[in-house]
Every structure is written in structure tokens, then in C-alpha cells.
Design a protein around this nucleic acid. Structure first.
Length: 180
DNA sequence: CCCTGATTCGC
DNA sequence: GCGAATCAGG
């Protein structure tokens, strides 16, 4: 079937609907980069996002996570520091093996520290909630901290210095136009 | 070269 | 108002 001509059809996506703008605002203020927001919204380029952001009067949101963070991928050198392991065996060693001494704590991720009851979705944020994004925005398990936000700050003190975790494959395919 | 946002300017 | 192209900084 031939597609209906454009008109008042609901397919009209050539404009920033309130819903789209709302997500744009939240994600932008949340500290996400324009390219990520563009990739998240879909059908829009980062230029479009930036242009809209500036047109809305938004600018200079929290500089915490951004500030030119192209690749936080820090290669982990397999060479760890020499740690002098010093198993203390004193007293009755017969019972020592029964205890599991936990020396190295496992890396704590914010994905694990924020209680489920506190987590908020995008539309549940308000001035009193922590706007800190946890995880990748396009991921189904993405959520906002939801903790108590400090006055004047969108994030709570606990998360104000931590970067979110971008997905590994945040690749987009920008059309490559030839030299005009 | 990768990325970022800022700005311009034709539409 | 919109966004590609361009610019400028990291």
C-alpha cells in the first residue's frame, strides 16, 4: 500500500514533541553528551540535539561526567602491584581454615549501591531527587539515583563525582556526505 | 583522530 | 524553528 501523504498523520516526527523535549532536557541536565542523547532519541543527530538545547536556553549543565570524556576506557595493566602476602598463622591454625578472610573487597558499583526502592525512572525525577544516571541510558536497567539531592545540586554527594557507565557499543553511523 | 559543545547560516 | 556544516577546544 502506498504510504499516505504527509499531513496531520501521527507519523510526523519532524518536530520536537513535548515528550521528546522532555527527554532531551532530562538527559541533557543529567550530564549525558549530545551524541548519546541523539543516539538515545533516535532519528536525530547530535547537531540537532545541540541546536535544540541551545534554542531552549539550556547550556552548561553539570560538568561532572562530561568535560570531554571521550574514552574513559582505561586499559587495565595486568601488572598489579607487588603485594606482600602475609598469611598470619598464629595460635591455633586448625580453626583458621574454617574462616574465610576477605581481604580484597569486590569492586563496588553504583549499580549495586543504590537500593531498588530508591531508583527512579526518567519521568520520576524532580527537584528533590538525585538526577544521577546509573548505567547506560539506552539500557533497560538504566535508572537514576533518586537519592536526596543537595540544595543547588542535581546530584547527591555520594554520586557527584562518579562517572556513569556508557555501553561498550555506543556507535552510531553518521552519514558521510562528500565535500560540498 | 577521537571526542566534546558552540556557533553560523541556509532552509 | 530546524539542523547540517562549520568552528573551536580537549
Amino acid at each position: 500500500m502506498a504510504a499516505r501523504s504527509e499531513g496531520k498523520g501521527a507519523m510526523t516526527v519532524l518536530t520536537w514533541s513535548d515528550d521528546r523535549v522532555e527527554q532531551l532536557k532530562k538527559l541533557w541536565e543529567a550530564g549525558l553528551s549530545a551524541s548519546q542523547i541523539a543516539a538515545e532519541l533516535g532519528n536525530v543527530t547530535r547537531n540537532a540535539v545541540i541546536g535544540k538545547v541551545h534554542r531552549l536556553g539550556l547550556s552548561g549543565r553539570a560538568k561532572s561526567p562530561s568535560s570531554a570524556a571521550p574514552r574513559p576506557r582505561k586499559a587495565r595493566p595486568a601488572q598489579h602491584m607487588m603485594r606482600v602476602t602475609r598469611p598470619i598463622a598464629r595460635g591455633n591454625t586448625a580453626l583458621a581454615q574454617a574462616f574465610e578472610v576477605e581481604v580484597e573487597a569486590e569492586p563496588v558499583t553504583y549499580d549495586n549501591v543504590v537500593p531498588m526502592s530508591q531508583r527512579l525512572s526518567l519521568l520520576e525525577l524532580n527537584e528533590a531527587t538525585c538526577h544521577w544516571p546509573v548505567g547506560d541510558p539506552s539500557s533497560p536497567d538504566f535508572f537514576f539515583c533518586g537519592g536526596r539531592a543537595l540544595s543547588g545540586l542535581p546530584y547527591c554527594a555520594q554520586h557527584s563525582r562518579v562517572a556513569y557507565q556508557p555501553a561498550a557499543d555506543r556507535r552510531r553511523a553518521p552519514a558521510k556526505p562528500g565535500p560540498r
